[in-house]
Design a binder for these strands. Sequence first.
DNA 1: CTACGAGTTCAAGCCGACTTGAGGTCAAGT
DNA 2: ACTTGACCTCAAGTCGGCTTGAACTCGTAG
Lengths: 160, 160
Amino acid sequence: MKDMDIAEVSRRAGVPASTLCYYEGKGLIASIGRRGLRRLFDSAVLERLALIALGRAGGFALDEISSMLTPDGLPKMDRGRLDAKANELDRTIQRLTAIREALRHAARCPAVRPMECPTFRRAVRLAGAGRFEVAPIGPFKAEAVSATRGKRKTGDVDLA
Amino acid sequence: MKDMDIAEVSRRAGVPASTLCYYEGKGLIASIGRRGLRRLFDSAVLERLALIALGRAGGFALDEISSMLTPDGLPKMDRGRLDAKANELDRTIQRLTAIREALRHAARCPAVRPMECPTFRRAVRLAGAGRFEVAPIGPFKAEAVSATRGKRKTGDVDLA
DNA sequence: CTACGAGTTCAAGCCGACTTGAGGTCAAGT
DNA sequence: ACTTGACCTCAAGTCGGCTTGAACTCGTAG
């Protein structure tokens, strides 16, 4: 396979050349050599870029992605790690699904105040958005859905 | 209703006081007055914060959220806008689902190189990886969202 | 041979959503 | 009256993922 210059990789992968440099700097991709100063890539990089894009689309950080790939582009994670990631994603999906339903519902629910509507409140709860002790009309137990991985130091919601 | 000081709101909503100030500055929430310098809130703010958290959890920007709420906390978006949002979210969910499947599959597929496996390739394709318009992932999780607000003019992707 | 322009490096900038720090105010407890 | 410490404001810092700019190199077409 003929090797490609950065412009061609950029074109074929749909990734700006500047990003390719950046990725190379981070060790996410590697050029196969140089012609003068210029990088040369072989087509394997396209595959690798696809994997990187897949990871990004899944919300993974670049560092995380690079820890998931060997220098030769093979995944290097054990099954447990992959499954853990999948589960994490699964929780995200469930949250987003709840929010989507909340939006759809809000589009046609006639309740004056959204929180008066049980369906809406349920969505809020599923979204893990508000463990708030708001107007307890009906059973509204906030379970610690948290798992907030940012450092929420104020994280101890009272909700007695 | 007895009004609350910022510490109480913070505690009950699980949101740092600094964030409450920040939100007030942005016009997302409002205090009902001051005692001396100190802000006073009434309990309606908790509900409003729940809506804000819901929006954030859905990956919406603060500006976007504020454009969706009236000053009195009622949603002000028309049905079309809500549905559009829901659809957006729906596409995100589908992408994430594809990625989740890719991960699960990768955990047990014996193919040496991931891209040799048709199932995996399909997932990559469904994930829309390559031209990423990376969307809402987690709240409180490394903001994967942002960034792509620019122009991805480096358009067509051509996977290996 | 020479100019052109694609490529290179490195530092700095940008965006969003906050957080942190310095320095100041003031309500309330003793 | 005095101390305490919760609260205030505003500027600046942080983090991730890039992008942009300036200054420079060098392969290649004419």
